[in-house]
Design a binder for these strands. Structure first.
Length: 468
RNA sequence: GGUGGGGUGGCCGAGAGGCGAGGCAACGGCCUGCAAAGCCGUGAACGCGGGUUCAAAUCCCGUCCCCACCUCCA
């Protein structure tokens, strides 16, 4: 397996810290609002990475955090007159629902920042003791990381502090250097009164970055394999995480994986710009969540996606072709199970998770399968179906997998409808044998009006209910 | 100002010195009573200008445009 490592700006071989195991920490969301599809892209990308490791036989520990306290959450709480935690939690529920709808596997653990204040305190104390952090001298209760005490600061993002613009309007207050960042933020009078914890440095709340260093350490250890997140987190968030952890003597992440962002209208999708597409909007286009997942997983994870309704609809059509084959093949030879993966698919995935090249292999197998279907070559068909399902399963879009086909497909009425349709089809078959095309087509048209679509195949008529 | 990544056929999207990924759309054919689905085939691309090379989408130089980050960000 080869992965692009931001720290060295090159694709390199993945060597796990412990053979057969991989620990991944992914920066999840700040739950200040519901998720948009850019956030979901992040989840899908790492879900595919995770599934690939699982497929390769690794024991995967996958930790994705929830940042449930920050300036925006507090501001919203104040504006709404509600506790900050009720806002964070409401958004966390929305997020979980969207993950589920997209078939994202639940993480091994999903820690919340506010649940790990003691771990943060411990780390901050270590940093102060080691001379890498200092309580502000202005009585604010803030604790800052001393950037100049850590020479490697800037290595991840390739920047030198002296070249940076620096904080234009930030409260320099008691910072020793404009680039120092807060580990702990002292109470401010204009913020909610229930958003604080006591600490050796006075009442306050966590700075943004410290939570990830503290939680990664707790659940993955001092050193772990992969740290992931969006490209926009490279600086300052990940740079600061490295600084905090390494300065405290923790080796921290061995590989840094960053996915590209999803843009809408020439700018990255973000709440503050208001250019946001969420699952509700996608549903309003008639695009299902499996189709959205296909859209998000098809381009390489390091390529920017310029969102458009048309591109999404096009992806939906492409996915329907795959789905169509899987359903038809399963009707013919049974669903079987996801099977052996073609070598080209494996090679593509091993090469920095090239899902786009991998999908080309899926389509090749699809063609083989469709030909076998037409030729009633069941052995070839079975093999093609297993291969296609196996590959789609890695991408998390196997049409026969649980997330996509449960719910509302008729339930108890399926048998009843089956019998009724069979009756109608028998009439149509008789009409066709008389070459009474008008009568045969009338049956088909009436069924269609009732939502039943009839197609003739090499193995006789096939019917499906609505949907496509 | 600093740092990183881009511009590929009508559209989406891989590739990173030589065999034209793949998908969507279009066109032609096959299959079909018709349809649907499918199969076979066709055309078409590397922002622009130079250069290196037997050979450049890929390397070099220049140039234009775009995106992300430089302390809210997936």
């Amino acid at each position: 397996m080869r992965l692009y490592d931001t720290a060295v700006r090159a694709v390199r071989d993945f060597v796990p810290r412990v053979p057969g195991q991989v620990g991944i920490y992914l920066c999840g969301l700040t739950v200040q609002a519901g998720p948009h599809i850019g956030h979901l892209r992040s989840a899908v990308n790492y879900d595919v990475l995770r599934r690939w490791f699982l497929h390769r036989g690794y024991a995967v520990t996958f930790v994705r955090n929830i940042t449930d306290i920050d300036d925006k959450v507090l501001a919203k709480a104040t504006a709404a007159g509600r506790p900050y935690w009720s806002i964070a939690y409401a958004n966390e529920i929305l997020l979980a629902a969207d993950y589920r709808r997209l078939g994202v596997l639940p993480p091994t653990y999903e820690p919340r920042a506010t649940g790990h204040v003691p771990e943060m305190h411990a780390l901050i104390a270590e940093l102060i003791a080691a001379g890498h952090a200092y309580p502000a001298a202005d009585g604010s209760g803030d604790v800052y990381f001393d950037v100049r005490s850590f020479p490697a600061y800037g290595d991840l993002s390739g920047q030198r502090p002296e070249d940076m613009r620096g904080t234009p309007d930030g409260p320099a207050r008691a910072k020793r250097d404009a680039h120092d960042f807060a580990l702990w933020k002292g109470v401010k009078p204009d913020e909610p009164g229930d958003a604080y914890w006591t600490s050796p440095w006075g009442p306050g709340r966590p700075g943004w970055h410290i939570e990830c260093s503290a939680m990664a350490r707790r659940y993955l250890g001092a050193e772990f394999d992969i740290h992931g997140g969006g490209l926009d987190l490279t600086f300052p968030h990940h740079e600061n995480e490295i600084a905090q952890s390494r300065a405290a003597g923790l080796p921290f992440a061995r590989y840094w994986v960053h996915h590209a962002l999803l843009n809408l209208g020439e700018a990255k999708m973000s709440k503050s710009l208001g250019n946001v597409v969420d699952l509700e909007y996608v549903a309003s286009l008639g695009v299902r969540s499996a189709e959205l997942r296909y859209y998000l997983a098809a381009p390489h994870y390091r390529s920017r996606i310029d969102y458009s309704d048309d591109a999404l609809r096009e992806a939906a059509v492409a996915y329907q072709r795959l789905e169509n084959f899987v359903h038809r093949a399963a009707e013919r030879v049974g669903p079987g199970a996801p099977g052996e993966l073609p070598a080209d698919f494996v090679a593509a995935m091993e090469d920095d998770l090239n899902t786009s090249a991998a999908l080309a292999v899926v389509h090749e197998s699809l063609r083989t399968g469709n030909s076998a279907l037409a030729a009633a070559d069941d052995a070839t068909l079975r093999a093609a179906l297993a291969a296609v399902r196996g590959m789609l399963d890695i991408l998390g879009v196997d049409p026969l997998a649980a997330p996509w086909h449960d719910g509302s497909t008729g339930g108890d009425l399926r048998g009843v409808v089956d019998a009724l349709v069979a009756l109608a089809l028998e009439q149509r078959a008789q009409a066709r044998s008389r070459k009474d095309w008008a009568a045969a087509d009338a049956v088909r048209d009436q069924l269609k009006q009732a939502g039943v679509v009839v197609e003739d195949t090499a193995h006789g008529p096939r019917w499906t209910v609505g949907e496509q």
